[in-house]
Amino acid sequence: MAAITIFKDFFSRMFFNIFKNKKEIKLGFYGPPNAGKTSLANRICKDFTGEEIGEVSKIPHQTRTVQFKEKVEISYKGKKMTFKLIDTPGIATKIDYEDFLKYKMSKKDAKERAKEATQGVIESIKWLDDMDLVVIVLDAAENPYNQVNITIVGNLAARKIPVLIVANKIDLKKADIKKIEAAFPEYEVVGISARYGKNLEEFYESLFKLSKKV
């Protein structure tokens, strides 16, 4: 009888592990507006599915709803992992519709965009609880000591969600990865250019390494 129980346990554990390994990892892209979250998510999606996840724009708050791409199988150095990519709206502490007027937008459209952007921020924060792994995308040319960045990192740390920090836009002259590394010494920082596909190998290497913690 005991032998049958051990046998049953062994098989149930084995099937559980097979199922667990095939599970999609929910990978969130978080960060302030215009840091390049959608550009990076698009780059990954395009490379592995041939499709994009969302539109990008120079106007802040282009992504105002949470966007998904399921069953994205990423291959790197012979290894494969399946992710559900979750591209979130940029998190901000202020949204002023007048800022959108600079982009030749009508007052009505600017107000509508601001309203949708506020909802987007709320949605992004709500989704924090559902992530298995988060890539925080920061603009390497901007000051990283921004309270929004610190709040996102703090919330993920409190939830014990593994974090990879991406310093995007390293193609820009003002880009300074060392400043981002100094601001977040406890995290791995990978410098990339999502727009030009620069240094993505290192990004995938870090992503796979961090996925083991999930």
């Binding site: 998190i91 901000a92 502490t93 202020k94 949204i95 506020t118 909802q119 921020v121 709320i122 924060i125 924090l128 309270q147 929004v148 709040t151 703090g154 919330n155 740390a157 409190a158």
Partner: peptide, 12 residues
Amino acid sequence: PEEESKLIKDTM
């Protein structure tokens, strides 16, 4: 941290 994110949500 959770109060900071709540502050952002309530601000929105």
